[in-house]
Design a binder for these strands. Structure first.
Length: 958
RNA sequence: GGGCCCAUAGCUCAGUUGGUUAGAGCGCGUCCCUGAUAAGGACGAGGUCAGUAGUUCGACUCUACUUGGGCCCA
């Protein structure tokens, strides 16, 4: 017997109930068990979520897709691994732990002890991985939550070692120098990405125009501008644009050179002496602004050509300090300029800078300006406001500092399109081999491929080091003799260790424990230490296609480590269980948020996979856009418009959230908000009402379908129509989901519900009302039941809770033989025998006729309530007549007329108009089609009538 | 400077091989229903599909350029 349906559709409440039902009856475990060992597999690879904070609503989007396709495949009997991943290591976690502990700088961390600090980081990951697990369950995300992978696992780190060694064997690993944005407070270099996200603020600085005497030309100066006077100590060149026009101006005794387009910066009266091309100013020697500093001795500052000089600000003569600026450094490399790097890690001047040595860069601007003035080099100084990079953690202004980092060489870029690169050239350039991998995968949307290719073509070498604490211990051992080696795993470390092994043994390969181990330099025999750097976290996430595809019980989780169930087997090679791995590699499907990942996770897995296996680790990649707030603005905790996952789950429920994500075009940003959600809910209410309608009357009648299907011979036209629509929809939905197009599947379902409600149920209500139980009533019940039952299974992967809620009452309560859960049923397949395309078309025509009837009533202001004698129609073809006749009962009822018939006196009532069908006219008349199309409507009513009667009419084109 | 995406009704968005009158929801107007009712339904108004040029018998759809917005790289 059916339970009555509550009036309100309360997602959070029903979800709690269903969750309990799933847990108590171990539904997920039963589903897994049912499909285990099946020949059909769904090979999915999860991109790890950073276990560092509670989830926001934006996390729920991708996770909805992950769950939806898993469930869809599982209902079809596919086996899967259901492995979720947590990203554990990296600065993100360190920053939060530092905040918790109230730390301000690296000094605080070192005073606290690296071991203590690293343990705190592990604790944090442990804590938030548990929170995210609970939240994911709340979303209805069915994963094997006991066996998630953690990127901090020894397997993961050692697998990266293996990868790095392989790179080193090819000679790709090198120690390089670059100028990086640097936070003097935190003592770290920041990546461009860290700055791009929220790293700029409006700042006012003292900027200076200075004059630099040209050697061998008396009283002639280069006029140069900078917003960062502290970098003048490291000036080695001045850049001019070779194609700009420069001017030589006279002010009193002095002669200045600057770009013509920047003359408004000159102070006071001046005369233009000469105009000259920038090219003619290249190669001049000048006296550097701080040539008296020890660090500046022996440099020969000169002017160089540079196409990036602009005329938007400054003087068109750009101060170049390769030790203090990224672009400067790149130009310096090209021009072979010397590099003067003035700052230490804390932002203080190093030895060799005279009175500046020991002073902090943040405090020297005024002194430097005074010094320039004293020496007669200052033209003038002024305040200048601009957007300046700051540290996203502590908001200190960043400086640019020369640092040494470790890189993986990505190989040369050839000056030609990818398609023209030869196999030989590809062998010599990793980046093109990665491109080959990219090309073998399917990217949804397809422009993702273009963007990845563009990134690969333009990317620099991969900077893999970071001067921090919590992360992959880079297995690079550097000896005092200059030689360095890369170790490929635990075994090699054990074999090569000459010192400190006992202090490391039993620990995870993290700082500070692993730092204790010294090896013997294979070149000079002296002990070599590991470099203190930790790894780029994208190495951690990039290795997961190799390190995490293990039998699930072998996967590392912090709990297992604590309980002793987890045992790291140091003798495992790569990949840990090759036979098992081969069954699940490559992933057939991955899905993540698009922006950012082209150069992060996608890039990392592609690169590592190309190096290790020479192929892509995934076959299909589905990318989705970002979640914004209701107004389309970025969600920010500080802006008070961000929505935590828990809040949304409590307020609107997981299923409504999931449905919103399913209805969204994956390539477009989603505007998430509660007003919007209410609209989606109202749409879903239609289905709720249909379900409620069915249950209400079935209860009254004591009706039970108990697995029966409607008797074909008793189906009414309307029954046959809705069953046809149902099966058409089932086919379309499957097709969409097979190509990972959730939106079209969702929209199709929504349209069906609309048809079911406004046409089938509304028109069939009386059949349910009548008091006697006859076969027609039963047929109506069984038809509506078939629609609901199928629909519920169809929607189950998208809205798993609600589908279960309905299924339990609709199906299970009256049929104990039915599967225990909707998720243990099969995914509906279209029954071709019930599809009647002609019927669908006919019904569409009928609905059109009804609509026109209503419109005609409205126009004459005659309410539907008032019956009319007859509806007259005139169809353009015999088929229309037939159809109208066939369905005249429906039409008469809907439009409320007593009779219906063809117009018997067409001449009096009908005026004919003709119109050209461009799809037919085009191919037939080609060039003249347009003329025909324009002429046809000029035909008189009589002419059209003749055309209709005789089948042809000759029309002359003017 | 290079690459990618977007621009369709007041708002949020659909529109997959180019082809009748370009669609939906919300909002708006006019009504209906009152046996799915703290619901539901009908009809209607509203669009030079950013602009220009091209390809084509035919372009919202393809190509080029322009403008505006967003992202990535330099």
């Amino acid at each position: 017997m059916y339970q009555s349906v509550p009036q309100n559709l309360d997602f959070p409440e029903l979800e709690k109930k269903i969750q309990k039902f799933w847990d108590e009856n171990r539904i997920f475990q039963k589903l897994v068990a049912r499909n285990r060992g099946s020949e059909k597999r769904f090979r999915f690879l999860d991109g790890p979520i950073t276990a560092n904070n509670p989830m926001g609503v934006h996390h729920a989007w991708g996770r909805t897709y992950k769950d939806l396709y898993h469930r869809y495949k599982a209902m079809q009997g596919h086996d899967a691994r259901y492995q979720n991943g947590f990203d554990c290591q990296g600065l993100w976690v360190e920053v939060e732990v530092e905040k918790e502990l109230g730390f301000k700088s690296k000094k605080d961390i070192e005073a606290f002890g690296i071991d203590n600090f690293v343990n705190q980081c592990k604790e944090r990951v442990d804590k938030y991985s548990k929170i995210q697990t609970a939240q994911s369950k709340r979303l209805g995300f069915w994963m094997d939550w006991e066996n998630s992978y953690f990127t901090m696992a020894p397997e993961n780190n050692y697998a990266i070692w293996h990868f790095l060694k392989k790179c080193h064997d090819q000679g790709w690993i090198y120690k390089g120098y670059d100028v990086m944005p640097w936070c003097a407070r935190c003592g770290i270099a920041l990546s461009d990405m860290e700055i791009a996200t929220e790293g700029y603020e409006e700042k006012t600085h003292k900027s200076v125009y200075i004059r630099l005497p040209i050697e061998g030309r008396d009283h002639e100066f280069l006029l140069v501008w900078t917003t960062t006077p502290w970098t003048l100590t490291s000036n080695v060149a001045v850049a001019v644009h070779p194609d700009f026009t420069y001017i030589k101006v006279k002010q009193g005794e002095e002669v200045y050179y600057l770009a013509k387009g920047r003359k408004e910066i000159l102070k006071g009266e001046y005369q233009i002496v000469e105009e000259l091309p920038g090219q003619s100013l290249v190669g001049l020697k000048y006296k550097g602004p701080f040539d008296y500093l020890p660090a500046q001795q022996g440099l020969k500052p000169r002017t160089v050509a540079w196409k990036d000089v602009t005329e938007e600000d400054g003087t068109g003569m750009v101060h170049i300090a390769p030790g203090c600026g990224k672009e400067d450094f790149a130009l310096g490399r090209q021009e072979k300029l010397p590099v003067v790097a003035p700052l230490d890690e804390a932002g203080a001047y190093i030895e060799g800078f005279d009175w500046l040595t020991g002073k902090n860069v943040a405090e020297v601007a005024e002194d430097i300006i005074a010094d320039l003035k004293k020496r007669g080099l200052l033209y003038y100084a002024h305040k200048y406001t601009h957007r300046y990079p700051v540290c996203w953690r502590c908001h200190s202004e960043l400086v640019f500092r020369l640092v040494n980092e470790w890189f993986i060489s990505m190989g040369p870029v050839y000056d030609k399109p990818y398609s023209q690169v030869t196999p030989e050239e590809k062998r010599n350039s990793l980046r093109y081999r990665i491109m080959d991998s990219v090309k073998t995968a399917r990217w949804i949307p397809s422009f993702g491929e273009d963007r990845e290719m563009d990134w690969l073509k333009n990317m620099g070498d991969w900077c893999i080091s970071k001067k921090r604490y919590w992360g992959l211990a880079l297995p690079i051992f550097e000896c005092g003799c200059g030689h360095f080696e890369v170790l490929g795993g635990y075994k090699e470390l054990r074999e090569r260790a000459v010192h400190g092994w006992e202090k490391f043994q039993g620990h995870t390969p993290h700082r500070p424990w692993v730092d204790e181990v010294k090896i013997k330099c294979s070149k000079c025999g002296q002990p070599a230490s590991r470099i203190p750097d930790v790894g780029n976290p994208w190495l951690d996430a990039g290795i997961v296609p190799y390190s995490t595809i293990l039998p699930l019980e072998d996967c590392y989780t912090p709990d297992k480590e604590k309980s002793g169930k987890y045992r790291f087997d140091p003798d495992r090679g790569y990949p840990a269980r090759r036979e098992y791995w081969e069954q699940w590699f490559p992933a057939e499907f991955i899905t993540e948020c698009f922006p950012g990942q082209f150069r992060n996770w996608f890039y990392a897995i592609l690169t590592m996979s190309t190096v290790l296996e020479g192929q892509t680790p995934f076959q299909t990649l589905l990318g989705h856009a970002l979640v914004k707030d209701e107004k389309g603005e970025e969600m920010h905790k500080s802006k008070d418009n961000s929505i935590p996952f828990d809040e949304a789950a409590d307020r609107i429920g997981a299923d409504l959230m999931r449905w919103i994500f399913c209805c969204q075009n994956a390539t477009q940003n989603l505007h998430f908000g509660y007003h919007n959600a209410a609209e989606f809910k109202r749409k879903l209410l239609t289905l709720h009402n249909i379900y409620s309608f069915y249950i209400t009357y079935a209860r009254l009648d004591g009706f039970s379908p108990a697995g029966r299907k409607p008797d074909q011979s008793r189906l009414t036209l309307l029954d046959r129509w809705i069953l046809s629509e149902l099966n058409l929809m089932v086919g379309a939905a499957r097709e969409s989901l097979d190509s990972y197009e959730a939106m079209s599947a969702a929209k199709r379902m929504e349209a069906f519900v609309e048809d079911l409600s406004t046409w089938y149920v509304r028109r069939s209500r009386r059949r349910f009302w009548k008091s006697e139980s006859d076969s027609d009533k039963e047929t109506a019940y069984l038809t509506l039941y078939a629609c609901l039952e199928t629909l519920v299974r169809l929607m189950a992967p998208m809205m798993p809770f609600w589908a279960e809620e309905i299924y339990q009452n609709l199906v299970r309560s009256v049929d104990p033989k039915a599967p225990e859960s909707v998720h243990l049923t099969g995914y509906p397949a279209a029954d071709e025998s019930l599809i009647d395309r002609r019927l669908s078309e006919e019904m569409a025509l009928v609905r059109k006729v009804v609509s026109m009837g209503h419109a005609a009533r409205k126009e004459s202001r005659i309410k539907v309530r008032q019956p009319l004698a007859r509806l007259l129609y005139r169809g353009k073809s015999l088929e229309v007549w037939t159809v109208i006749e066939k369905y005249q009962d429906i039409i008469m009822d809907e439009v409320n007329v007593k009779a219906i018939g063809p117009i018997d006196d067409p001449d009096r009532l009908i005026r004919y108009k003709a119109k050209g069908l461009v799809s037919k006219l085009g191919p037939r008349y080609k060039n003249q089609a347009n003329l025909v199309k324009e002429t046809v409507p000029t035909m008189t009513s009589e002419q059209v009538k003749q055309l209709v009667q005789e089948g042809s009419f000759t029309l002359s084109l003017v």
